[in-house]
Simulated scan of single mutants.
Amino acid sequence: MIRIGFFGTHRNKLGESPLWDGRSRRLWWVDSLAGEIHAASADGEPVLCWRQAQPVGSIGLAADGLVAALADGFYLIDRERGDATQVVRIGGDGLRLNDGKADRGGRFLSGQMRVRDGGEDGRLWRLDADGSATPLASGFAIANALCFAPDGRTLYAADSLDGMLRAYPYDVETGDIGARRDLVDCRVHGSGPDGATVDADGNLWVALVMAQAVACFSPKGDLLRRIDLPIPYPSCPAFGGPDLATLYVTTIANSGHRLVTDHPDGGRIVAIDGLGVRGLAEGRYVPDNHIRE
């Protein structure tokens, strides 16, 4: 039986990028526009809050601390103090980095989003071990839903505004991508896609931000199940907990633009148990100056 509750008591303005760290047994996430990186223990007790000087699009595990896509580039986040050290700046008129994930080969990917009307289209970027950044795809208004198939050889991504969940062949050895394949038009299900994750069976779990639901799709794009949530604006799911069997879903209380709710639990993290599936351990960004484990 599916059980839906809340993880902890913290209420985010713009919750995003949940991330389970099996080593520390913590759930990480960000309050994007507040520029905050949060962590809590497995029982929801707050552990830390690191404030950054700019919006935080997404975070990933790194060999020593975290990697982050802040508004203007990729950064390494010190695991003791939360200090941010820029790895490489990503420019763009009216753009900031948004959703991101580590691949299975030690890299970190993030896509851009427009922060004002009339800005240029964003790109999908790959941060390599040597600290260089390479554009992989273009034409994104709001890049979201980045995640990888269990074998790492399919990259999923989306533009929330055009509604299409996309799949790309992905070379784990080089980080190169192949031709885009359109997988699911999420607008058929009442919303453009926001964040996404993949379970151990290779199925995709996608936040339908405008439909107050999370949908599960097969790798072929078939709708397998839909879970309606008790609060508006789910933004990103991630599997976690000691057995990777809990689906955590961040939500939005105030995006600073279109999405605002006065729901008393708006912005909290939803925890869903009893799904009968498990997630995958997250990849890690491994810079060249670290030995891969």
Rank of each mutant, 00 (worst) to 15 (best):
N98G: 04
A62W: 10
R11M: 10
D159T: 09
R89Y: 00
R107K: 03
S255I: 03
P230D: 01
T197Y: 03
P287M: 05
D121F: 12
A207L: 05
A129T: 15
L33V: 13
G152K: 11
G94A: 12
D288Y: 04
V30F: 08
T85V: 08
S17Q: 05
L109Y: 07
E120Y: 01
A238P: 00
F217Q: 05
R104H: 14
E45V: 07
V188S: 05
A157W: 07
T154I: 15
Q112M: 05
A133Q: 03
Y248R: 07
F148L: 04
E293W: 04
S191N: 05
D130A: 12
L165N: 00
F148W: 12
A62E: 08
R114M: 12
D103F: 10
L244D: 09
A69W: 07
P135T: 01
Q86N: 02
D288R: 13
R278N: 14
G178S: 02
L61E: 12
R25Y: 00
A84T: 04
E80S: 12
A102S: 15
M1D: 11
L229E: 01
L136C: 08
S218H: 09
G35D: 09
V188P: 02
A53Q: 08
A39K: 02
V286R: 06
K220G: 15
A196P: 02
Y156V: 10
G44H: 12
W50G: 08
L224A: 02
G274V: 01
I77F: 05
D21V: 01
D130F: 06
I231R: 00
D103L: 09
V88T: 14
A207C: 05
A40M: 07
Q112S: 04
G57W: 10
T85H: 14
V188A: 11
R123A: 11
F108D: 08
S17C: 12
A143Q: 07
P230Y: 05
L27Q: 13
D130I: 06
E293M: 09
R26E: 14
D243I: 02
T9E: 15
G276L: 09
D222N: 12
W125A: 03
D194R: 03
G267M: 10
Y248H: 13
L146F: 03
A137V: 04
I227M: 01
R89A: 15
G106D: 04
L280E: 11
L146S: 05
D43L: 06
A271S: 14
T250P: 01
L97K: 09
G221V: 07
R26P: 04
T154W: 00
R292G: 04
D228S: 13
G240Y: 05
I231H: 02
G82S: 05
L223N: 01
A215W: 00
D222Q: 13
D21I: 02
D194H: 04
L70H: 08
V188T: 11
D182R: 11
D99R: 03
R79D: 10
D228Y: 08
L127C: 11
A211C: 05
P230N: 03
F6S: 10
G122W: 03
L48W: 02
R180A: 14
P135I: 10
A245F: 02
L223W: 08
E36T: 09
H290F: 15
A158S: 15
T174S: 15
R226Q: 10
A215R: 00
T261G: 00
D130T: 02
